[in-house]
Amino acid sequence: MIPPTYFLYLAALLFAVGAFGVILRRNAIIMLMSIELMLNAANLTILTFGRIHADPHAHAFAFMVIAVAAAEAAVGLAILVGIFRNRRNVNIDELTLMKY
């Protein structure tokens, strides 16, 4: 049988990859996708612990997280379209009208 720790490791690594994506890429779409990765990592952790505790509530929690992720993606993409409309690109490191 697979040790549950493996799943936790996988989730942690996925979280790290997502975090790397957020800080490394300047394209806002990729950043959004990276955030999805981080949310999925958290979800995997929840489900693993749900399995460990044999607790189906974790599944309901994960369900909520998926719904939240969907809403977040929609809002994020909407804001992105707004940005694109104003500037014609979605590079996050060029969004520096406001600073200091």
Partner: peptide, 29 residues
């Protein structure tokens, strides 16, 4: 992890709906 329902949901909602949204925006931009 015996999360059959969530697995199905993952495919339907994530890989299906959300990613279609992403593809859409990518195509538009």
């Amino acid at each position: 992890l015996s999360a059959h329902f969530i697995a199905a949901l993952q495919v339907l909602v994530y890989a299906g709906a959300i990613m279609v949204l992403f593809i859409f925006v990518v195509m538009v931009l």
